[in-house]
Design a protein around this nucleic acid. Structure first.
Lengths: 250, 250
DNA sequence: CGGTAAATTGACCTGGGTCAATAAATGTGG
DNA sequence: CCACATTTATTGACCCAGGTCAATTTACCG
């Protein structure tokens, strides 16, 4: 891919670029999603469950999460969101947001409206196909979590979360080794895995006693990834991709 | 929509037609997915987890389910599939299937290959947009189930499954009232809700004692839908759709 | 009508929840 | 840099929703 013209940076395009080689034209089209960066403080709520939503967002920097609250006040965290993720995609379907989205660290997000998606779908068949692909990957990730909540032990779920987070962080930071800062409270870990904070604490201690991880001041080190993955029932879904059906670039 | 020419029947088009009005041209394009019907006996496996997959399918008649098996032999049912559903969509991404798909009743399925999707995406922006929309709706349904498994009681999960199944059956059969045949064993209900068959039995009995349902020979009657929905933490997602961003038909 | 799969029920057990008390970490304003 | 306030983490004691095991009973099927 030549770079004779300056093509604007795009976090989302970088993410798509992990899957396919983008034409300059395509890259420019994706960059249009990220023309209006906005800063968010840690803890800021981008979108509240049941509130009307009119825009989608690209998360350009930082980490966020989405969750729902149940009648009894308990919370289920649905997804952790990293740079390059598209947020509030449900705005393509629902008037009101089915989930709350909140910044876990200071973030940069870029809002864009539904019409931008209309244009993309019309002008760029390959990009609309790749968005389908990414949606499908997210769906598989969700079914993996569904199976974890339905059928695996507390220890396995915690182990799976640790591996998953490390792997997703490493996607954007190749240098990341076995040691990283989770950036989650134990309550948040519990709300993501369907456990209580107290039991999360016990399981982390057990994983440490088993020699699978080490912990120091919010930092986690995966000491034995093979055994940890085994304890977690972990499946690496970044394997065996087959995208040959995609139409040619425009 | 005029009907001067005979447009082939299409189960999938009917489903899409619940969301938008299709042009004749679009309807014909969707019908191309259903040119090769194939019969499946009850219990037949359409696709096995980890086996290579090269085609997608439209389920034209009958009911199916998808599931994964964990290392310890336990099973998590991911989704129940009804007429008009697209199966094995993960073939757009993965060489090997991440899940097993099996017929729960005698079924008719229509295989089509990935190239058909390439053509659709290229020629019909509005249809590719609507497929994105349907994918998104399925994602929201999955997150609803995730929250149910992570944060609700056994009784609530069973109640939610009963309501959900009745509603999905009623989509294809307007006449369906409060009484219907589930067509699932208690073990299957358990594998869908993350419970054991024994406990499913106890919860069904309790729901019956509470006066919320009646059971006779595989048939279930919802006696008090309001209270049942309340017990289930049920959210109706067929409300508040907003699809105005879709491009014009071709 | 026999044989197998599915449903039911009781007795008992355990993984994970609840409650409560400390300790440690992280802010925050001065 | 410090003193205080607020989260967050940790641990123990105890409990219960849902699991396990096993024995019947009932329904379905060729």
């Amino acid at each position: 891919m030549g770079d004779h013209f300056r093509v604007p940076d795009s976090c989302f395009a970088d993410r798509v670029g992990d899957l396919i080689d983008l034409s300059m034209n395509e890259r420019a089209a994706l960059a249009r999603f990220e023309e209006r960066p906005r800063e968010l403080r840690r803890g800021a709520i981008l979108l509240r469950e049941n509130d009307p939503q009119s825009e989608l967002f690209i998360l350009q920097r930082g980490m966020a999460m989405s969750y729902v609250l149940l009648d009894d006040g308990s919370r289920q965290i649905l997804r952790f969101l990293y740079a390059g993720d598209m947020l509030a995609v449900s705005a393509l379907v629902y008037r009101d947001s089915p989930e709350t989205v909140v910044a876990l660290t200071d973030c940069t997000v870029c809002p864009f409206d539904r019409a931008a998606m209309t244009a993309l779908v019309t002008d760029h068949p390959r990009l609309s196909a790749i968005i389908m692909v990414m949606n499908q990957m997210e769906k598989v990730a969700l079914t993996d979590r569904l199976a974890a909540l339905g059928r695996t032990s507390a220890k396995a779920r915690i182990a799976a979360l640790l591996i998953e987070m490390r792997n997703r962080m490493r996607l954007r930071d190749q240098a990341l080794g076995n040691s990283f800062t989770l950036g989650l409270t134990q309550e948040e870990i519990g709300d993501a895995t369907g456990l209580t904070a107290v039991h999360v604490n016990r399981m982390l201690r057990q994983l440490e006693e088993d020699g699978l991880i080490r912990r120091e001041a919010g930092r986690v080190t995966l000491l034995n990834e093979v055994q940890l993955a085994q304890a977690a029932n972990y499946i690496d879904r970044f394997d065996g991709l087959d995208l040959r059906w995609l139409p040619p670039a425009r």
